[in-house]
Amino acid sequence: MNRIIKIFSVAITLFFTTTIRAQDVAVLVQKVKAKLDVVNDYIADGTMKTDVSFIKAPIGQVKIYYKKPNQFKLKRDGGISILPKGGVTVNMSSIVSTNDFDVIPAGEEILNGIKTKKVKLLPRNDNSDVVITTMYIDEANLVICKAITTTKENGTYEIEMSYGKYINYGLPDKVVFGFNTKDYKMPKGVTLEFEDEDKATKDKMKNKKGKVEITYKNYTINKGIDDKVFK
Protein backbone atom coordinates (compact mmCIF):
# COMPACT_ATOMS: atom_id res chain seq x y z
CA MET A 1 0.00 0.00 0.00
CA ASN A 2 2.77 2.21 1.03
CA ARG A 3 4.38 1.44 -2.19
CA ILE A 4 1.27 2.29 -4.18
CA ILE A 5 0.98 5.63 -2.41
CA LYS A 6 4.59 6.29 -3.16
CA ILE A 7 4.18 5.60 -6.83
CA PHE A 8 1.00 7.61 -6.98
CA SER A 9 2.55 10.59 -5.27
CA VAL A 10 5.51 10.47 -7.66
CA ALA A 11 3.09 10.31 -10.55
CA ILE A 12 1.16 13.28 -9.26
CA THR A 13 4.31 15.23 -8.62
CA LEU A 14 5.51 14.42 -12.11
CA PHE A 15 2.21 15.38 -13.60
CA PHE A 16 2.19 18.73 -11.93
CA THR A 17 5.78 19.44 -12.73
CA THR A 18 5.29 18.74 -16.44
CA THR A 19 2.07 20.68 -16.51
CA ILE A 20 3.69 23.57 -14.85
CA ARG A 21 6.65 23.32 -17.15
CA ALA A 22 4.36 22.92 -20.17
CA GLN A 23 2.58 26.02 -19.18
CA ASP A 24 5.90 27.76 -18.72
CA VAL A 25 7.18 26.88 -22.14
CA ALA A 26 3.82 27.68 -23.74
CA VAL A 27 4.18 31.12 -22.30
CA LEU A 28 7.71 31.25 -23.55
CA VAL A 29 6.59 30.32 -27.07
CA GLN A 30 3.86 32.94 -26.86
CA LYS A 31 6.41 35.50 -25.80
CA VAL A 32 8.65 34.62 -28.71
CA LYS A 33 5.65 34.80 -30.98
CA ALA A 34 4.67 38.17 -29.57
CA LYS A 35 8.15 39.46 -30.23
CA LEU A 36 8.05 38.24 -33.81
CA ASP A 37 4.59 39.74 -34.21
CA VAL A 38 6.01 43.22 -33.85
CA VAL A 39 7.43 42.83 -37.33
CA ASN A 40 4.65 43.34 -39.85
CA ASP A 41 6.93 43.30 -42.81
CA TYR A 42 10.53 43.61 -43.75
CA ILE A 43 12.84 43.83 -46.70
CA ALA A 44 16.28 42.41 -46.19
CA ASP A 45 19.44 42.27 -48.24
CA GLY A 46 21.77 39.38 -47.94
CA THR A 47 23.76 36.66 -49.55
CA MET A 48 22.66 33.13 -50.22
CA LYS A 49 24.81 30.09 -50.47
CA THR A 50 23.45 26.76 -51.61
CA ASP A 51 25.37 23.70 -50.53
CA VAL A 52 23.79 20.66 -52.07
CA SER A 53 26.07 17.97 -53.43
CA PHE A 54 24.41 17.87 -56.82
CA ILE A 55 23.82 21.58 -57.20
CA LYS A 56 26.59 23.81 -58.39
CA ALA A 57 25.41 27.27 -57.57
CA PRO A 58 27.21 30.52 -57.02
CA ILE A 59 26.94 32.62 -53.87
CA GLY A 60 24.25 35.07 -54.80
CA GLN A 61 23.01 38.43 -53.67
CA VAL A 62 19.44 38.13 -52.48
CA LYS A 63 16.64 40.42 -51.44
CA ILE A 64 14.10 38.98 -49.10
CA TYR A 65 10.59 40.27 -48.67
CA TYR A 66 8.30 39.29 -45.82
CA LYS A 67 4.84 40.31 -44.89
CA LYS A 68 2.61 38.98 -42.15
CA PRO A 69 1.28 36.41 -41.77
CA ASN A 70 3.09 34.23 -44.29
CA GLN A 71 3.99 36.08 -47.44
CA PHE A 72 7.57 35.47 -48.30
CA LYS A 73 9.66 36.16 -51.38
CA LEU A 74 13.31 35.68 -52.12
CA LYS A 75 14.72 37.47 -55.13
CA ARG A 76 18.12 36.67 -56.41
CA ASP A 77 20.31 38.90 -58.53
CA GLY A 78 20.61 36.56 -61.51
CA GLY A 79 16.88 35.97 -61.48
CA ILE A 80 16.97 32.30 -60.49
CA SER A 81 16.92 30.90 -57.00
CA ILE A 82 16.77 27.29 -55.94
CA LEU A 83 15.25 26.56 -52.53
CA PRO A 84 14.42 23.25 -50.97
CA LYS A 85 10.75 22.51 -50.99
CA GLY A 86 8.93 22.56 -47.67
CA GLY A 87 11.22 24.99 -45.96
CA VAL A 88 10.36 27.62 -48.47
CA THR A 89 9.77 30.37 -46.01
CA VAL A 90 13.02 30.07 -44.10
CA ASN A 91 11.16 32.08 -41.57
CA MET A 92 10.35 31.48 -37.96
CA SER A 93 7.20 33.39 -37.57
CA SER A 94 5.49 31.06 -40.00
CA ILE A 95 6.35 28.15 -37.76
CA VAL A 96 4.69 29.75 -34.81
CA SER A 97 2.06 31.59 -36.78
CA THR A 98 -0.80 29.51 -35.38
CA ASN A 99 -1.61 28.55 -31.87
CA ASP A 100 -2.85 25.20 -33.00
CA PHE A 101 -0.21 23.04 -31.38
CA ASP A 102 0.73 21.42 -28.12
CA VAL A 103 3.92 22.47 -26.48
CA ILE A 104 6.07 19.97 -24.58
CA PRO A 105 9.19 20.97 -22.74
CA ALA A 106 12.21 18.84 -23.47
CA GLY A 107 14.93 20.18 -21.24
CA GLU A 108 17.72 22.59 -21.75
CA GLU A 109 20.74 22.61 -23.98
CA ILE A 110 23.76 24.78 -24.61
CA LEU A 111 23.92 25.75 -28.27
CA ASN A 112 27.01 27.59 -29.45
CA GLY A 113 27.54 28.85 -25.95
CA ILE A 114 23.98 30.01 -25.53
CA LYS A 115 21.74 28.42 -22.96
CA THR A 116 18.53 27.37 -24.65
CA LYS A 117 15.24 25.78 -23.71
CA LYS A 118 14.33 22.80 -25.81
CA VAL A 119 10.64 22.69 -26.75
CA LYS A 120 8.66 20.28 -28.85
CA LEU A 121 5.66 21.51 -30.79
CA LEU A 122 3.02 19.00 -31.85
CA PRO A 123 0.35 20.18 -34.27
CA ARG A 124 -3.17 19.30 -33.20
CA ASN A 125 -4.43 19.15 -36.76
CA ASP A 126 -3.91 15.59 -38.04
CA ASN A 127 -3.71 16.83 -41.64
CA SER A 128 -0.79 19.09 -40.95
CA ASP A 129 2.29 18.27 -42.99
CA VAL A 130 4.42 18.98 -39.95
CA VAL A 131 4.71 16.00 -37.66
CA ILE A 132 6.84 17.57 -34.98
CA THR A 133 8.99 20.62 -34.51
CA THR A 134 11.73 20.85 -31.92
CA MET A 135 12.79 24.36 -31.05
CA TYR A 136 15.74 25.67 -29.09
CA ILE A 137 14.78 28.99 -27.58
CA ASP A 138 17.16 31.54 -26.13
CA GLU A 139 15.10 32.49 -23.11
CA ALA A 140 17.01 35.64 -22.31
CA ASN A 141 16.57 37.19 -25.73
CA LEU A 142 13.32 35.44 -26.64
CA VAL A 143 14.60 34.23 -29.98
CA ILE A 144 14.66 30.82 -31.62
CA CYS A 145 18.20 29.54 -32.14
CA LYS A 146 17.40 26.29 -33.83
CA ALA A 147 14.40 24.41 -35.08
CA ILE A 148 14.12 20.85 -36.36
CA THR A 149 10.96 20.07 -38.23
CA THR A 150 9.88 16.67 -39.40
CA THR A 151 7.32 16.66 -42.17
CA LYS A 152 5.36 13.93 -43.84
CA GLU A 153 6.20 14.97 -47.37
CA ASN A 154 9.54 16.68 -47.30
CA GLY A 155 11.50 14.85 -44.68
CA THR A 156 13.29 16.50 -41.84
CA TYR A 157 14.83 19.89 -42.04
CA GLU A 158 16.80 21.95 -39.66
CA ILE A 159 17.01 25.67 -39.27
CA GLU A 160 19.79 27.31 -37.32
CA MET A 161 19.77 31.01 -36.65
CA SER A 162 22.25 33.40 -35.18
CA TYR A 163 21.42 36.90 -34.14
CA GLY A 164 23.10 40.26 -34.05
CA LYS A 165 21.89 43.79 -34.67
CA TYR A 166 18.26 42.86 -35.19
CA ILE A 167 17.84 40.61 -32.18
CA ASN A 168 15.26 42.95 -30.74
CA TYR A 169 12.96 42.16 -33.65
CA GLY A 170 13.73 38.48 -33.46
CA LEU A 171 15.32 38.71 -36.91
CA PRO A 172 18.47 36.65 -37.49
CA ASP A 173 21.70 37.72 -39.10
CA LYS A 174 22.26 34.30 -40.46
CA VAL A 175 20.01 31.36 -41.22
CA VAL A 176 21.32 27.93 -42.08
CA PHE A 177 18.75 25.66 -43.53
CA GLY A 178 19.64 21.99 -43.49
CA PHE A 179 17.65 19.27 -45.22
CA ASN A 180 17.79 15.83 -46.76
CA THR A 181 17.82 15.51 -50.50
CA LYS A 182 16.41 12.91 -52.78
CA ASP A 183 18.26 11.26 -55.62
CA TYR A 184 18.82 13.26 -58.71
CA LYS A 185 19.38 11.73 -62.11
CA MET A 186 18.74 12.81 -65.68
CA PRO A 187 18.80 10.30 -68.51
CA LYS A 188 21.79 10.70 -70.81
CA GLY A 189 19.54 10.64 -73.82
CA VAL A 190 18.05 13.91 -72.63
CA THR A 191 21.23 15.68 -71.67
CA LEU A 192 23.27 14.15 -74.53
CA GLU A 193 26.27 13.84 -72.30
CA PHE A 194 28.21 10.77 -73.18
CA GLU A 195 30.98 10.94 -70.64
CA ASP A 196 30.62 9.02 -67.45
CA GLU A 197 31.34 10.80 -64.23
CA ASP A 198 34.50 9.78 -62.46
CA LYS A 199 34.17 7.93 -59.18
CA ALA A 200 35.10 10.84 -56.93
CA THR A 201 32.32 12.95 -58.37
CA LYS A 202 29.90 10.05 -58.10
CA ASP A 203 30.71 9.52 -54.44
CA LYS A 204 30.39 13.18 -53.74
CA MET A 205 26.94 13.21 -55.31
CA LYS A 206 25.84 10.51 -52.89
CA ASN A 207 25.92 12.91 -49.98
CA LYS A 208 22.27 13.41 -49.21
CA LYS A 209 22.59 16.35 -46.81
CA GLY A 210 21.86 19.75 -48.21
CA LYS A 211 22.32 23.22 -46.81
CA VAL A 212 21.14 26.69 -47.73
CA GLU A 213 22.78 29.54 -45.91
CA ILE A 214 21.45 33.07 -45.91
CA THR A 215 23.41 35.88 -44.36
CA TYR A 216 21.44 39.07 -43.82
CA LYS A 217 23.16 42.41 -44.10
CA ASN A 218 20.37 44.78 -43.21
CA TYR A 219 16.67 44.87 -42.63
CA THR A 220 14.13 47.53 -43.46
CA ILE A 221 11.37 46.84 -40.99
CA ASN A 222 7.74 47.81 -41.02
CA LYS A 223 7.93 50.22 -43.93
CA GLY A 224 5.14 48.49 -45.84
CA ILE A 225 5.43 46.33 -48.94
CA ASP A 226 3.25 46.25 -51.98
CA ASP A 227 1.52 42.86 -52.35
CA LYS A 228 2.60 42.75 -55.99
CA VAL A 229 6.10 41.86 -54.88
CA PHE A 230 4.94 38.44 -53.74
CA LYS A 231 3.35 37.45 -57.00
Binding site: F54, I55, K56, A57, I82, Y184, M186, K188, T191, M205
Partner: peptide
Protein backbone atom coordinates in the same frame (compact mmCIF):
# COMPACT_ATOMS: atom_id res chain seq x y z
CA UNK B 1 20.35 20.09 -65.70
CA UNK B 2 23.15 17.67 -66.25
CA UNK B 3 23.23 13.89 -65.86
CA UNK B 4 23.77 13.85 -62.17
CA UNK B 5 23.79 17.43 -61.05
CA UNK B 6 22.44 20.88 -61.62
CA UNK B 7 24.56 23.84 -62.58
CA UNK B 8 23.69 27.43 -62.00
CA UNK B 9 25.79 29.92 -63.92
CA UNK B 10 25.80 33.62 -63.18
Amino acid sequence: LKNSYVVQLQ
